[in-house]
Design a protein around this nucleic acid. Structure first.
Lengths: 218, 218
DNA sequence: ATTTATTTTTAGACAAACCTAAAAAATAAA
DNA sequence: TTTATTTTTTAGGTTTGTCTAAAAATAAAT
């Protein structure tokens, strides 16, 4: 139905739309590492396929059909990530590129059987919700760790970015998806936090780090 | 390293070479459903990449490097087929097309972890051997069911073709890879065989069918 | 050994997805 | 409200992998 290139554009528009309603050519160009002129070409193509609404010079957004397609791709991406971590023992910080390839395998039967095999997981290893076969996303009342008061126990559910620097830091501190922890102290001077990792050691993290970690009460 | 199109050509040369040393342009054209002119173009390209040896008008064969690449692709194809049948409950007659897509996922780490997850299987669901990480194929002393004497117990290891008609017939008779059976009678009139499926019912199959079923002693 | 038929290659085109350079539109600044 | 800057689009090219039509090489038949 769609080429790999088309699917990557659709996914990029979806992600950028989380930030702002209308997505600009330049934003897509940066996200996809292609030149603006190439983006314009593809937008014209996707418009004729009724996947996006697009008026020259005024940005794009996904049509309802486009959203469906995007959720299908994201579903595949996140299910494969879950598979790689849960079944094949990949580190959760090394699955992204492989999942970028696997998400373009077309068989819907495969996706649905994979979903069943994994036990219909609701969140991927980064804590992001996995759309179900109808495109529905589980919503999670998640908050930033930087806003959690002292002595409350929470569980890490997501990270605000996928940068390898961030993932490296989390690994070093012994933090991952599902880690339970309690905020012990908050230092007013620099906003750094002292955390007690459930039944384990105490670590200190910066305010910058606490501001990209999503948690849920437990 | 290689594009999907290149990999499909390499795989096709490998398969056709099982029949005859030198592979012709026309044979590749038929196998890949492309025109002979397109095949010639690709052969020139693969020659410069030192994947095949090719002299105009005299056919091609894989270089030793080309064989390595081919075995890598076949390894992925067969491991994925095993995964689909063993873990995702696909019928063994419906995995081929999906595996045709999955075999082009590049990560070798993925392949090796998948291999481990599956328990290093030696044969795929069609009974074909799966190359190990060094490209070695398990050889199997397999014989045709039509040559097995009465009262010997054997296990089905492979089928001589992948035609959907054959696969449908096998499914109907309750025969699949790994099925153990004993030859009960051989009717001289038409060469048909009566088989007792291990601890189950008795079925009769034609000589034509027995001539495409590979088995091993058990 | 010629002629005929088949197979294979060359030549020239096309669509997809990218590119650079230049023009046009929109936005911000003077 | 002009002018300058940034953003986006158009115009024209490139590469990959395919195609058709025609030419060349090989194989088969008389």
């Amino acid at each position: 139905m769609f080429t790999v290139a088309e699917e990557n554009y659709i996914k990029a528009v979806y992600h950028l739309q989380q930030q702002q309603e209308m997505v600009s050519t330049n934003a897509l160009s940066a996200e996809l590492q292609t030149r603006p002129a190439s983006v314009t070409d593809m937008l014209k193509k996707l418009k004729t396929k009724r996947i996006i609404s697009y008026e020259p010079y005024h940005g794009v957004k996904l049509s309802s059909e486009g959203k469906k397609v995007a959720l299908g791709i994201i579903r595949k991406h996140r299910l494969w990530e879950y598979f790689l971590v849960d079944k094949l023992q990949f580190g959760w910080d090394e699955v992204h590129e492989v999942a970028e390839e696997l998400e373009h395998i077309s068989s819907t039967k495969l996706v649905d059987k994979l979903d069943a095999f994994l036990g219909y997981p609701k969140f991927d290893p980064h804590g992001d919700p996995i759309p179900d076969s109808k495109g529905r996303l589980a919503s999670q009342q998640q908050e930033l760790l930087s806003g959690i008061p002292i002595s409350k126990t929470v569980e890490i559910t997501a990270v605000g970015s996928q940068s390898s620097e961030l993932l490296e830091l989390l690994k070093h501190k012994g933090l991952q998806m599902g880690t339970r922890l309690e905020v012990k102290k908050i230092f007013d001077f620099d906003g750094s936090l002292e955390l007690k990792i459930k039944n384990q050691q105490v670590v200190t993290i910066s305010r910058d780090l606490a501001s990209v970690l999503f948690v849920k009460p437990v």
